[in-house]
């Protein structure tokens, strides 16, 4: 009796599982071979210590370059930060906003008591409707990692080296 019941139960569970597996759903991060948070930190546009201390300066510089001069490079663009680090929805499928504690930016800003107003105007999550492939895969050429596509900086001239190694007399110490 019980064995018959358990057989029926098992069969229905299997059927349900098969049904779920067969459903075509939007691919998850794992399906798309997207990066985990740790990999993202390794592939970020600047080394981790730089991005932690200087991201606000980079964003400030980028915003002026974009607004005034029309420069739209991706390496320090807020939109690309969002595309890479913030998921479009929460675990339960509802839209993720800056006010939510699982928002990538909020996780730190809440801890350090930082109030920012970027997201009063800017979109705080990827615009999936506009671009479904907003995120690039790990190690792809679309990345904006600081070692990608950056030509070697010109070697400092002897005068520049001198300026650094032998500060001028009277210069502020």
């Amino acid at each position: 009796m019980t064995s018959k019941f358990s057989q029926v139960f098992l069969a229905s569970v299997l059927a349900l599982a098969a049904l779920l597996a067969g459903c075509s759903k939007a691919p998850t991060e794992a399906d798309l071979n997207l990066a985990t948070a740790k990999q993202k930190a390794e592939e970020c546009v600047e080394p981790e210590n730089v991005i932690r201390t200087k991201h606000m300066d980079m964003l400030m510089h980028q915003r002026d370059a974009t607004m005034i001069e029309g420069i739209r490079t991706k390496q320090h663009s807020l939109k690309e930060c969002i595309n890479c680090h913030v998921s479009a929805t929460k675990q339960d499928g509802s839209p993720l906003h800056y006010g939510d504690k699982e928002h990538f930016c909020t996780t730190c800003h809440a801890a350090v008591g930082q109030k920012i107003d970027c997201f009063q105007c800017h979109a705080d999550r990827p615009d999936v409707a506009q671009n479904q492939n907003y995120q690039h895969a790990v190690g792809s050429t679309e990345g904006h990692h600081f070692t990608q596509g950056v030509t070697e900086a010109a070697a400092p001239t002897t005068a520049e080296v001198q300026m650094v190694t032998q500060p001028q007399q009277g210069a502020a110490q």
Partner: peptide, 28 residues
């Protein structure tokens, strides 16, 4: 009024003036 869910290419927010920008994001 406070806004949410702005377009990623067209930021708009409370307390600022706005107008046609000839779709500057498209022109670029």
């Amino acid at each position: 009024e406070p806004l949410t869910d702005q377009r990623s290419y067209s930021p708009r927010g409370m307390g600022t003036v706005e107008s046609c920008n000839m779709c500057i994001h498209r022109i670029d």
